[in-house]
Design a protein around this nucleic acid. Structure first.
Length: 876
DNA sequence: CACCTAGTACTTTTT
DNA sequence: GTACTAGGTG
């Protein structure tokens, strides 16, 4: 792999490539400017001084930055290493570099690019000593942070729930940090009891992080800023290095990031920021829309270039987006336009529940991806590739129902976000081993791996170690946690069982052995050593199928580590740990793979697809319930909706489910639906006999509002139309989603790292565990339909088991209807299974919508099967 | 000390 | 629907 150079390196370079002759310059102008419109050209050629590019969605923002950089290099003669571009994700940086390479060749390699977090991390690694920061710090993610806080809670004997829930405490600390407040300032400002509590935690947290030699995501930015402010020599070096600064997605920068950029831009003032206030969706993480709204005030000489021509979407889609976002008050008035007039109207589907909604989406996808003979030409566009389709939703939890439907229909997909590769337990364990090797003070990582694989070190032992560590901290003794582990192993710590002592000595020995190789072997080799020396490998080998899966992930990690071979071992380690800590969800997105993309609205920012589904448009979900009472938050939800809609190039589909499975009860159709001009929408509910239009769709008293009244209260639409958009009948219990993902190769949870090839899609897994029945996408009737069936059955007074089979029901392949709350198998029943032969029911357990039967089969062993799936015949 | 089970509490978005 | 905890057992 060709690794871009470290953007923070400040070594001297030779002369910049430059077009010398007038003819050369003319051809450069032609090449770089020709594809651009007037406004884009202005943005590209305005190279000196502050520049704000107000780039509406799809207006060629990335193109402007790329061409601007090319222009600087080839027309203005600026050296590539004098240019910095800050992007929102590493993926965006990589893409920009690729495009730039196409334009200007190898010189693109030397342009500095990265995210705020990665740039700060590099600078701190290199120069942190100038502000008293140890450069061997580890980077802590939310999980690591939570472990730190949980430690405090344990010391204080406080619950990790309610108002002392770690994520809440951390959220409050983070918010304060992003406002630039120190823990001490928090304490000074605290008024309520709770604020004092949080402030005290903040103080402790800061002190502990220092002791742990760790920086969290906020710290990277804060310390990065402090470095520029408090180490003038260092700051000057970077100012001398980067003459031209670019910031992409500027609307989502926070005050700290802004301060950091401003420090760098001081002097030359060549700062180009590109953003769209309508797409500001990260205020909850400190992004400050004032950065964009007040840019002119902060930089009075700034040039402002609005880009309002959209090259992505049809007019219909833009009008829909505008209809929504124009309801916001705090925005710079603007309206995008496009030459692509007209466009497909936007189908809106009101589903009964999430399954129903997902089934509808899958049907539309099947339409999109298959040619439809028999229809008129304009009705039958060329089929779409799966990779041209994305399904967007507000919360990660919503992906589940959609995944189920896609799995059932055997439609390959890639899921972005959710449980990420680097968050998987075994991957984090392996990385924690590396972090321990890197930094002896990293107690959190130590505690993570000290008993991985299990070696008899439990909570009690860890508590003793922590007490010893805390005691030394109070003495002001600088001993690292690692040295405490080591000394405990040699017998210096009282109160340990001999067994624990031996185990600790073992850990210390492993650490020492591995560390001795640290600077000598390359990263994949080091990981191999970690896997074998620690016993991880042997442990997973003994863990069956799940162990195999985990082991595969560890091999994957080793593969990723191979990207750093060209670096010195220690640099490679730092770089690897940094990149694994700072990967963005979006970085996992694969573009060259033919799969439907499932992604949150947030993560979809900056991306585009020919066909986009936005699902879950119900009040309380989207807009989210936490925004309902707060105007500012509501406006952000609206911007999020705007972002979602403008991801679509040609086709947009909207849907909502009136009944939600958890928590907040039933949802009314989202207000955003009402904000889209009606003539742009078309109902996808075709089966209401009363109105001839969508049952749950329309305007005014008869429309969305009627749908609101309809559900739960015995409203008209449900009775009148029967089962609106009845599910296609196939359904399976949601257990073991992970196993089925694997079976279909459908969803590496973190994309590029781990996606099996698409060819495996039609293969069913071996049935070693007897769970084939739970894997195969056989149909089952949804519980609400089954209930209805139950009523019918009772009225016939029939108890014959046959009536529980489902010939009469629409679903194909149904084996057995499970009536909620009723077991159909008793302990001791003799049953026959198509593959396993005869067996005896050991136990049976009811789940929400199914029955789990555990059966002992002669010669096969004990299997647990889903009654709705397994073809079980009672024989005695 | 590890493992299992049952019960409980909570459920946005992410670098 | 899950993530965590408490409490019991081996």
């Amino acid at each position: 792999m060709n690794l871009p150079p470290d953007p923070t390196a400040t070594s001297e370079k030779t002369a910049a490539p430059r077009a010398h002759s007038a003819a050369d310059r003319a051809s450069v102008e032609e090449r770089i400017l020709a594809p651009l419109n007037e406004a884009q050209r202005r943005a590209v050629t305005t190279t000196e001084g502050p520049l704000l590019v107000l780039a509406g969605a799809g207006s060629g923002k990335t193109r402007v930055i790329t061409h601007r950089i090319a222009w600087l290099i080839q027309h203005e003669g600026v050296a590539p290493w004098n240019i910095l571009a800050v992007t929102f994700t590493n993926k965006a940086a990589a893409e920009m570099r690729d495009r730039l390479t196409e334009m200007i060749g190898d010189a693109a390699r030397d342009v500095a690019m990265g995210t705020f977090h990665s740039l700060c991390a590099r600078m701190l690694r290199r120069d942190g000593e100038a502000i008293g920061l140890p450069t061997g710090f580890n980077i802590y993610d939310a999980d690591d942070q939570a472990r730190v806080i949980k430690g405090f809670l344990k010391e204080d004997d406080l619950p990790a729930t309610g108002e002392t829930k770690p994520s809440l405490i951390l959220g409050a600390i983070s918010r304060a940090k992003n406002e630039g407040l120190s823990a001490e300032q928090m304490e000074d400002r605290a008024i309520t009891h709770h604020e004092h509590l949080i402030a005290r935690f903040a103080k402790r947290y800061a002190a502990e992080m220092r002791r742990l030699d760790a920086l969290d995501f906020d710290d990277l930015l804060l310390e990065g800023l402090r470095l520029l402010r408090e180490a003038p020599a260092v700051a000057d070096r970077y100012r001398a290095k980067w003459h031209y600064l670019h910031v992409d997605e500027y609307q989502d920068t926070n005050r700290i990031q802004y301060g950091w950029v401003r420090e760098l831009a001081m002097g030359r003032g060549n700062l180009c920021v590109v953003g769209d206030d309508d797409q500001s969706i990260y205020s909850w993480r400190g992004a400050d829309i004032r950065n964009i709204l007040d840019f002119e005030r902060d930089w009075p000489t700034a040039t402002i270039v609005p880009l309002e021509q959209n090259y992505r979407s049809t007019q219909t889609i833009l009008d829909a987006a505008h209809g929504v976002v124009s309801n916001n008050e705090g925005r710079k008035a603007k309206k995008l336009w496009t030459e692509r007039s007209g466009g497909h109207t936007i189908p809106v589907f009101g589903a009964f529940d999430q399954e129903d909604e997902a089934a509808w989406i899958v049907r539309r996808i099947e339409e999109l991806t298959s040619a439809r003979p028999g229809k008129a030409q304009e009705e039958a566009p060329t089929p779409h590739a799966l990779s041209e389709i994305a399904i967007l939703y507000r919360t990660n939890a919503q992906s589940r129902a959609i995944e189920e439907a896609l799995l059932r229909a055997v439609v390959p997909y890639q899921l972005i976000g959710g449980t990420r590769f680097y968050q998987r337990r075994e991957v984090k364990d392996a990385l924690a081993w590396l972090r321990v090797l890197r930094n002896d003070a990293d107690r959190i990582s130590f505690e993570r791996i000290i008993n991985v694989p299990p070696r008899g070190i439990g909570e009690k032992t860890i508590e003793l170690l922590r007490a010893a560590d805390a005691a030394r901290a109070e003495d002001g003794a600088g001993a690292s946690y690692g040295s405490i582990v080591a000394s405990a192993g040699t017998g210096e710590l009282q109160g340990l069982s001999p067994r624990a002592r031996t185990a600790l000595a073992g850990v210390a020995a492993i650490v020492e052995r591995l560390r001795s190789r640290l600077a000598l072997v390359d990263l994949p080799e080091l990981l191999d050593a970690v896997y074998s020396e620690t016993g991880l490998r042997a442990h997973l080998a003994a863990e069956g199928v799940e162990g195999e899966e985990r082991w595969a992930n560890l091999l994957e990690l080793r593969g990723i580590a191979g990207r750093f071979l060209e670096l010195e071992p220690l640099d490679a380690l730092d770089r690897f740990l940094e990149e694994t800590a700072l990967v963005a969800d979006q970085d996992a997105l694969e573009v060259d793979v033919d799969r439907v993309t499932l992604i949150t609205l947030h993560a979809a920012k900056g991306l585009e697809w020919p066909a986009v589904f936005i699902s879950g448009l119900t009040e309380g979900l989207f807009p989210h319930s936490r925004a309902l009472e707060d105007r500012e938050q509501m406006e952000e939800e609206r911007r999020l909706c705007y972002v979602g809609i403008t991801r679509a190039k040609a086709r947009l589909y909207l849907s909502y489910a009136l009944r939600r499975s958890w928590g907040a009860g039933d949802g009314a159709p989202s207000r955003f639906l009402e904000e889209i001009p009606e003539e742009l929408l078309e109902s996808a509910n075709e089966d209401d006999p009363r109105t001839g239009e969508a049952a749950a769709f329309g305007r005014g008293a008869r429309g969305f509002a009627a749908a609101r009244g309809g559900i739960g209260g015995g409203g008209a639409w449900r009775e009148g139309s029967g089962d609106v958009g009845a599910p296609d009948g196939s359904f399976r219990p949601s257990r073991d989603l992970e196993a089925r993902r694997r079976a279909y190769g459908a969803g590496a949870r973190s994309g590029s790292l781990h996606v099996p090839d698409a060819d495996g899609i039609d293969e069913l897994p071996d049935d070693e565990d007897g769970d084939l029945d739970a894997v195969r996408p056989v149909g089952r009737v949804p519980a609400w339909l089954a209930n209805r069936f139950k009523g019918a059955r009772e009225s016939t007074q029939s108890d014959a088991p046959d009536t529980r089979t489902a010939q009469a029901l629409p679903a194909s392949g149904v084996r057995r209807v499970i009536v909620p709350g009723e077991r159909t198998f008793r302990d001791g029943d003799r049953v026959r299974h198509a593959r396993f032969g005869e067996g005896i029911v050991v136990t049976s357990r009811l789940t929400r919508s199914d029955e789990e039967v555990t059966i002992a089969f002669a010669g096969v062993g004990v299997k647990t099967l889903a009654a709705s799936m397994a073809q079980l015949e009672v024989i005695g």
